[in-house]
Simulated assay, not measured.
Amino acid sequence: MGGLSVDGVYGAGSRSRVRSFQDDAGLTVDGKVGPQTWRKLRTYGKALGWKSGVTVYMCKASSTDFRFSVWNNSGKAADWTFYVSGGHFSGDAISDDRIAAQGRIAAGAYDSTKLTVWIGNYDNDHTTTSVRNFSRNTLPACA
């Protein structure tokens, strides 16, 4: 999940991140990834990129549309833009401790280039190029 490195260990950092997700998604907070948490994660899809507490998710909404969502766990209101070859997409600014579907883009194969997040205002940007490419073949169906 956003902001953690994959090491195969479900440790304190993973439990803390899961508890935050559960709280922000309106689930029972227990730090365990049980059936309700898995269902909610499938609602949003695959994490494409994360930076400074903001995670962008994508799933297949239909054969012609992908849906993107964002989770803001940054501590402040945030805005974001996800760049792909030939363009970009972004959603509405989102308040802290919130996760929500934000919009749709046409289904296709996309080469991702970067994610930029603005925390609090447009003078405070954070950028990462550690983002995932996506296509119909790599995204789960929206639950």
Rank of each mutant, 00 (worst) to 15 (best):
K40N: 13
R39A: 15
F89K: 04
R136E: 02
S90H: 11
W80L: 00
H126G: 04
V117C: 08
H126P: 00
F21K: 01
R132G: 10
Y10S: 08
K114Y: 06
G75K: 02
F21P: 05
A47I: 14
A106G: 08
S135C: 13
L139H: 12
L4N: 05
G108L: 09
F82S: 01
V9S: 04
T138R: 05
G3P: 14
A78L: 08
R15G: 11
T28P: 07
T81C: 03
G120H: 01
R39T: 15
V117Y: 15
S20R: 12
G11M: 04
F89C: 03
G45F: 14
T43I: 02
A93W: 03
G2N: 10
W80S: 02
G3L: 11
D24A: 14
W71H: 00
G49T: 01
F21Q: 12
P35N: 10
K51G: 02
L41M: 04
D125Y: 15
W80A: 08
D125S: 15
F68G: 10
L48R: 01
V117K: 03
V29T: 13
W50L: 03
A143T: 12
D79R: 08
V56L: 05
S16H: 06
L27A: 02
F66M: 06
G13V: 04
G86T: 06
S130W: 12
G2K: 08
Q36C: 09
D111S: 15
V70E: 11
R132S: 10
D96C: 03
K60V: 05
S14D: 14
L41C: 03
Q36T: 14
A93P: 10
S20Y: 08
S5Y: 05
A78F: 08
A101S: 14
G103Y: 09
A101G: 12
Y44R: 00
G26C: 13
V33Q: 07
D92M: 07
V70W: 09
I99F: 01
K40P: 06
G8L: 14
V84D: 00
S63N: 14
A78D: 04
A107W: 02
Y122H: 07
D125G: 07
K32Q: 11
S69D: 11
G87K: 01
K46H: 13
P140R: 15
A61I: 00
V18T: 08
G75R: 01
D96K: 02
Q22D: 05
N124P: 03
T37W: 02
F82P: 01
Y110T: 00
